[in-house]
């Protein structure tokens, strides 16, 4: 008889893996990526490709130089690159896209110890870094085939109220408006949302609470349902709420904490957009809540059975 294997219980496993989760996120981002290319043309593809390739290359190189086990196989760098790319507009020079990706991977993730140890969402932090370093990241670019090549995004127009300059709500829903390549098509993002919920990768309530909070606040503040709908569809709210506010690493680990996280994101987004008239509400709200995440987790810890 050959040697029997001795291990600790349990001896069966659900079969879940981190890599599979990352692949699911990538699959969920495909509709938005396709929509980006359809709406903004091949330039969008170039943005996405540069971001993904530079993110993966940065992680591979970091692991190599730091003599760490190669971790690109977990696909998390692909997710970061893709998310960052979808958060940028076609107006951003490709070299800036690459710099942003490298910053997201190296500074935000790898230097903190790699996957699972970063305190902020790498894609969000990368985007905010680019915003501060290169100014415009989302604004300006118009859908391919539009009469204007550059112009104001709906989010920039909204403070003036609902006007003729705005695209229709339907155009907003399917993404025919200016903005970052992956944020405009709410329809494609919702497809990804449904996929992630069905695959049990994310909880349905996090995006719902985030988006719902922004909607309710805007409605209360303006008394105008149409304006509130525009606010919800404009900018990176769907992309951020579905794909970034649900990032495991940088949000609380428990359900109650995640609900509070989503609520906080919604409130901060509203405050930044409404009172500061500043279009970057979603990124900053998630980043701020990322920092609060450990506290939310502590405050909302469940009382154990018999404890």
């Amino acid at each position: 008889m050959e040697q029997l294997i001795t291990t600790s219980s349990p001896h069966i496993h659900s079969g879940a893996s981190s890599r599979r989760i990352m692949l699911d996120v990538i699959i969920a981002l495909l509709p938005a990526s396709v929509a980006a290319v359809v709406i903004f043309g091949m330039k969008a593809l170039a943005v996405l490709a540069v971001c993904v390739v530079s993110a993966v290359a940065a992680e591979a190189l970091f692991d190599l130089l730091a003599h760490k086990p190669q971790t690109v196989g977990d696909c998390s760098a692909v997710v970061t690159g893709l998310l960052l790319g979808l958060n940028l507009s076609t107006n951003v020079p490709l070299w800036q896209c690459a710099v942003g990706s490298v910053f997201a991977i190296i500074v935000v993730k790898c230097l903190f110890g790699g996957l699972g140890h970063n305190f902020a969402n790498p894609a969000i932090a990368g985007r905010v870094f680019m915003l501060l370093a290169f100014s415009a990241v989302a604004g300006g670019a118009m859908p391919a085939g539009a009469e204007l090549v550059t112009g104001a995004t709906p989010l920039e127009l909204l403070p003036a109220g609902v006007s003729d300059q705005l695209p229709s709500l339907w155009e907003m829903f399917i993404g025919l408006c200016g903005g970052a390549v992956g944020e405009t098509c709410a329809l494609a993002l919702l497809l990804g949302y449904v996929y992630l919920v069905v695959r049990k990768v994310i909880k349905w309530y996090v995006p719902a609470i985030f988006i719902g909070t922004v909607f309710v606040c805007c409605f209360i503040a303006s008394g105008d349902v149409v304006l509130a709908l525009y606010e919800v569809l404009a900018g990176g709210l769907f992309l951020g709420a579905i794909f970034m506010a649900t990032d495991y690493v940088t949000t609380p680990i428990n359900a109650q904490g995640r609900m509070l996280f989503a609520l906080g994101c919604g409130l901060i987004t509203f405050i930044i957009r409404w009172f500061c008239r500043y279009p970057e509400g979603v990124s900053f709200s998630i980043l701020i809540m990322n920092i609060l995440s450990p506290y939310l987790e502590k405050w909302t810890a469940r009382k154990p059975l018999g404890g």
Partner: peptide
């Protein structure tokens, strides 16, 4: 269990997904 069912999986980094918390019957972390 046969060899296949006895295979061990290599641990990777915790991604803080919360499944352990969600599925702990006692509610521990």
């Amino acid at each position: 269990f046969n060899q296949k069912d006895s295979a061990q999986m290599e641990p990777t980094a915790c991604i803080h997904c919360g499944r352990c918390v969600e599925n702990c019957p006692i509610g521990l972390n």
